[in-house]
Design a protein around this nucleic acid. Structure first.
Length: 422
RNA sequence: GGAGAGGUGGCCGAGUGGUUGAAGGCGGCGGUCUCGAAAACCGUUAUGGGUCACUGGCCCAUCGAGAGUUCGAAUCUCUCCCUCUCCGCCA
């Protein structure tokens, strides 16, 4: 969330940022509640201070009249404080609904059409025959199965089978190895059920609860991304500054109900209620976050480069970047069969927006007062769509799929997916 | 899931309802001593918030969380969470 102090000092900046993001921000209500809260709090504390003082006196004198007066003061302080807290709750609730501001380098715009292509790497592969989609190829080869998934779970689920499942496992291994051995991330296997406080910490709550799956009757949610457990790992802590940046990588399933997206990408292995992702998370100091953000983006790009996939780096405009992000890049991989790019990674920096919600701080130097950390995350990469891009890019005229060179060590000698072994 | 024990500051660990925001120790920081270091000794060492005559002061809150009893709660009561031990169940 944003510091209340920022909203007091520069409400217009916050309003403007929200408008350019296409979000609502109840700034005037917040300012009114803020005034009310401080009035009641001041009243309560004044009475309480006097009560504390007289209470010590009472310990000596045991004066009955004083006791009666103290009883009244206690009631008064209690009711003022209750009033202050009620207003503060309302205030905090609204604060959690104020979107983050954004970095000066973010282009102002309304829709995805206003996003900026920062660079393109590689080029669209010429196949020399009519490209087929990953779901056509996948179903034909028997490595993807949507029909049985619909029976077992419902729509927007999928099975990977045989060499398809093997491909995902190889990719996971490849990505984790690259990020841990070469990029210095610590591998983590987190819980995939998290509580509401964690969901609030990363700003998935209160606004986006409808996009997530909740466990009935319990305060538990299925993680929409490993960002939630990784970023909340240090919630309510004060870290030593010299431990930063912290770098974590985790492979987890991700669960999204995607309520608002019905009808979009219904075909194929693209937008599912459950998908796998390798996620990168960094916790940094305020000074280094923007540079660490660019590094994280580069770490994710390495995966695409090694897989030999053509992709573009897209800088998201204000209107398309989301509630919590300070700046965001998408990595879009080219899929010849679909004839379009698929988003395989989304990399974001949040400045202290998440850290304030999660109360995640660090001490810049010995004895210095704590500051809120900066948080960064990005997919490195989403497995499902990376598989789509690989299948469509490496397909051969006979409908089999070549295994990208980088994955050969992870595929146990398999060089072509779908080749008859007879 | 059943039975029991316990959750105190960066860490360990005292704590009788009333100068206890909290003894003591460790660690950290500053200093004395020293050619320097160690040791020893002295001092200092939480977080959040409000407020003011605002490079400082004053006030409030915080001893797992929440509620209660009381003029006053780390200390008494209740609920919840977590940890540990034993049993059960399981991967």
């Amino acid at each position: 969330m944003l510091p209340l102090e920022l909203i007091r000092r520069d409400p217009d900046r916050v309003k403007r940022a929200a408008r350019l993001k296409g979000e609502e921000a109840p700034i005037d209500e917040i300012l009114a509640l803020d005034r009310g809260w401080r009035e009641h709090l001041h009243a309560a504390e004044t009475v309480k201070a006097e009560q504390n003082r007289l209470s010590k006196e009472f310990a000596k004198t045991r004066d009955d009249a004083l006791k009666e007066r103290l009883r009244e003061m206690a009631d008064q302080a209690k009711s003022e404080l209750a009033e202050a807290e009620a207003v503060k709750h309302e205030l905090d609730d609204l604060l959690l609904r104020v979107p983050n501001v954004f970095h000066e380098s973010v282009p102002v715009g309304e829709t995805e059409k206003d996003n900026l292509v920062v660079r393109e790497v590689g080029s669209k592969r010429e196949l020399g025959f009519a490209a087929r989609t990953h779901y056509d190829l996948g179903e034909t080869l028997g490595i993807m199965d949507f029909e049985h998934a619909a029976r077992v779970s419902g729509s927007r689920f999928a099975f990977l089978i045989g060499e398809g499942a093997r491909l995902e496992r190889a990719l996971v291994q490849f990505m984790l190895d690259t990020h841990t051995r070469e990029h210095g991330y610590v591998e983590v296997l987190p819980p995939v059920l998290v509580n509401s406080a964690s969901m609030t910490g990363t700003a998935n709550l209160p606004k986006f609860g409808a996009d997530a799956f909740r466990i009935e009757g319990q305060d538990l949610w299925l993680v929409p991304t490993a960002e939630v457990p990784l970023t909340n790992f240090h919630r309510d802590e004060i870290l030593d500054g010299d431990r930063l940046p912290l770098k974590y990588v985790a492979y987890t399933p991700c669960f999204r109900s995607e309520a608002g997206a019905a009808g979009k990408d219904t075909r194929g292995f693209i937008r599912l209620h459950q998908f796998s992702k390798v996620e990168l998370v960094k916790v940094t100091s305020a000074e280094t976050s923007m540079a660490e953000f660019e590094h994280l983006l580069a770490d994710a790009e390495v995966i695409l480069q090694r897989l030999g996939l053509h992709y573009q780096v897209m800088l998201m405009c204000s209107g398309d970047m989301g509630f919590a992000q300070f700046k965001k890049y998408d990595l879009n991989a080219w899929c010849p069969g679909l004839g379009r790019y698929l988003e395989v990674s989304s990399c974001s920096v949040f400045n202290d927006f998440q850290a304030m919600r999660a109360n995640l701080r660090y001490r810049p130097a010995r004895g210095a007062p704590p500051s809120f950390a900066h948080t960064i995350n990005g997919s490195g990469l989403a497995l499902t769509r990376t598989i789509d891009a690989i299948i469509e890019t490496y397909q051969r005229a006979d409908g089999t799929i070549e295994v990208p060179e980088a994955l050969l060590p992870y595929m146990g000698g398999l060089e072509v997916i779908g080749r008859r072994s007879s």
